[in-house]
Nucleic acid binder design. Structure first.
Lengths: 126, 126
DNA sequence: TCGAACCCTCACATTGATGTGAGGGTCAAG
DNA sequence: CTTGACCCTCACATCAATGTGAGGGTTCGA
C-alpha cells in the first residue's frame, strides 16, 4: 500500500508517517517513481508508535524499544550493546512507574465518576 | 515552605512550579512580600502532576483530573457539569488505553531483556 | 489532452513543556 | 551597610510533535 492508505488505516496524517520514517521508526520501500510503499505489518507498527507517543515516550526511546516487539523469534539481540541494555532496563522501569501512576489516577477518576453517578441516580427519581 | 524548598523536595525546577500555578494546577499563598508559600500537601500534588505529565497528559486534562484525587471525603462534585463528566469518562478510558499499551510494551521489553540475559549467562561461563 | 487524486520534498508555523537569564526586590548574618 | 541567598516578574529560546502549504511530479480515466 502507499502512504495514503496507511494514513487512512492508522488514522495518522501522512506528514507524521514521513516524520516517523525520518526518525527511523518505520521504513518504507520506494516505487520507481519515488512513492513510498508499505506492507501490512506497518499498520500495527504505526499503531504501536502512536500508542507509545501518546503514553509520553519520545521517538528516540521508541526507536530503542521497537526491535523488542518482533514476536516471531527475536533474532535481534546479538547487536545489543551493554549501554543499550541499560537504556532498555531504565525504560522498562520508567514504563512501570508510568503504569503505576496512570493506574492509580485512573482508578481515582473512575471511583469519582461512580460516586457522582450514584448521587445523580439517587437524586433524579426524587 | 517557600518555592525553593518545594522545588528541592519534588525535584522540580522553580520555573515549572510557577508554570503549574499559571496553568491552575497548584495554588500558592503569598507572603506580604509576594513570596509564594506552600504547605506539605503540595509536595504530593506536584508529584502527581509530574507523573501525569510524564505519562503524556496535558496540563489542561490534569487540571480536570486533580479534583478527583482528594481522598478525604470528596465534597467536590456538586459543580460537576455533564460535559465535564464526559471529559472525565473519556480521559478515564484513554488512561486505560495507555495502561494497556504501556503494559504490553513493557512486558515485551522485559521479556526481551530476560532472553538476552539468559543468553549472556549461558555464554560467559563457557 | 485535461483534470482529479495521488505522491514527492522542502520549509516555515504552532503548541506545550521546558531552559535561561535579565532586572530587580527581601532579608538575615557578618 | 553590604553581601549572599532567597524571592519576584517578564521575556526570549529551545525541543519534539504536529499543522500547513507551496511548488512540483505521476497516473488514470473522461
Amino acid at each position: 500500500m502507499r502512504i495514503g492508505e496507511l494514513s487512512e488505516r492508522t488514522g495518522t496524517p501522512r506528514r507524521l508517517l514521513r516524520y516517523y520514517e525520518e526518525q527511523g521508526l518505520i521504513v518504507a520501500d520506494r516505487l520507481p517513481n519515488g512513492y513510498r510503499v508499505y506492507d501490512a505489518s506497518n499498520v500495527d507498527r504505526v499503531m504501536q508508535i502512536r500508542g507509545l507517543l501518546d503514553a509520553g515516550l519520545p521517538t528516540r526511546i521508541i526507536k530503542q524499544i521497537l526491535p523488542c516487539l518482533n514476536k516471531p523469534r527475536m533474532i535481534h539481540f546479538p547487536d545489543a550493546t551493554p549501554e543499550m541494555l541499560e537504556t532498555l532496563e531504565n525504560e522498562r522501569d520508567r514504563m512501570t512507574d508510568r503504569i503505576r501512576c496512570l493506574t492509580r489516577n485512573r482508578d481515582a477518576v473512575a471511583e469519582y465518576l461512580d460516586v457522582v453517578r450514584e448521587k445523580l441516580a439517587a437524586g433524579s427519581p426524587a
